[in-house]
Design a binder for these strands. Sequence first.
RNA 1: GGCCCGUUCGUCUAAGGGUUAGGACACCACCCUUUCACGGUGGUGAUACGAGUUCGAAUCUCGUACGGGCUACCA
Length: 528
Amino acid sequence: MRKPSFLQVFYSTSKQLNSSTYLCIMSKVRVRFAPSPTGGLHLGGVRTVLYNYLFARKHGGDFIVRIEDTDQNRYVDGAEEYIFDCLRWCGIEPDESVQHGGEYGPYRQSERKDSYREYAERLVSQGQAYYAFDTTEELEQMRQKHKTDSNPSPQYDHHIRMRMRNSLTLLPNEVEELLKAGTRHVIRIKMPESETVSFTDMIRGEVSFETSLVDDKVLLKADGMPTYHLAVVVDDHLMKISHAFRGEEWLPSAPVHILLWKYLFGLDKMPKWAHFPLILGPTGKLSKRDGAKYGFPVFAMNWTDPKNGELTEGFREKGFLPEAFLNLLALLGWNDGTEQEIFSKEELVERFSMDRVHSAGAKFDYEKAKWFNHEWIKRSESLAPKVEQLLNDAGIIVNDHIKLENILELVKERCHLLPDFVQQTGFFFQAPQTIDLDAVRPKWNEEKKIFFLDYCDLISGAVEWNATALEETFKKLATEKNIKAGELQLPFRVMLVGGKFGPPVFQIAEILGKEETIKRVSSFTELL
RNA sequence: GGCCCGUUCGUCUAAGGGUUAGGACACCACCCUUUCACGGUGGUGAUACGAGUUCGAAUCUCGUACGGGCUACCA
């Protein structure tokens, strides 16, 4: 018997599915990251990008970056460029964006301004939204007037709206007049008085809300710009977004978005939602404003606030590898069910699945973050350019690149953050500026001084210059002089590197070379 | 205050009714190493509480407590 073709199977299976599942199968996966250009890009933002990206790649879909710049007051110069720089550093390239182009542009909401009003007006004519003419002062008055102990933050909702100045309370011709006169107004959604709105979150399952408890959110602002609520729904529709992922802080406004989808485009067209758990700092939600006050970075890369010139350090500059940064972020709220913790980007794409994303918030652990970075440093084969840059910045010139590669292999396991390499490799290229004499002094004596002088004589004539030979000579001489070799190794180390650190001391001497080794020992013996 | 989400070692997490509740980071001890690391071995350490369902609950249900988020013409 012939096997049924894929299409036949597909057709017969799909008939048994409901229409929304059918659509889900049919439509291409398209996800978006929608940041607002208001400052640095923090941990949580990058993880949201990552999960979006992984999901898109995993399902052969598109990853879109849409700039949500509908608030002109909060616009910060350079923030948009910065976001793309961060993504580039992480190795995440969008398929469509302001910088990458695409068929669904413009990808900046401010440039789509004209399209939103039409949808808001449509809602008004459908009776699902209304014009509101209340001024900021009137709103403030309302909040003051209705504020009680049991209701500290009164909402513009179905209890209040009939007492405000809007197209629900005003006569039609009054509204007409106000509109004609160009009176500043907003368009608000008219939340139903008693409906239950629910949806299935890919991470949390069914979530439901009573519409009577949700306020009449502004959809279109007085300046003609949409609020997030309108823009996200309209643009997700226009850009054919199949799955909408965002942080948990958006969950409370989900009913507004669901209703908007229902009114404007139909629930069957609505993307699947997932709300990611928050990444918490030591005291709660990580905030952009808290910058590096936690003792660890929160931004992906250095961010300088153009308003006050204030610099906030980023993970990149702190010395994190992008591979490690992505890895640690991926594991903050997700795991593949095995005990594996180190994943490359490619592995993450392969293993990622939304139903293994945790629903509970995760407190960021900087110690573990450093462990991830250490693991990636140990695995990395391409550290040299980064380390060389760091050394240059410290005023140390790298004259031999093969030598640097060899040194890197030797010291990798001692470095958690990239700047650690400066201490661990610097002395190979430049004699130590400071010598930790105190580490040697207590057990130092004339006998030992003579040992080193004699050792220098011995090795200066050595034909074979390698760690093994050097160690052999060293130990032999020590035995002859009846001094414990161990007591001599620490001083030797301090002479060569300046302190109690670094790889095995004879290997250091090997790399340093004869001339330099003898030079450092001699100058040391003159100091003590 | 209201609404929503959440709750397994200090932290990130595994365990989709039956496990001595597993791993990782951190911490401690020992081994390796006469620096510091890496590595190895071992250890301390958790199902918030109370009911219910069940022969059996970390796991399902309800309540309580606690934590977090939201409550703008910000996103």
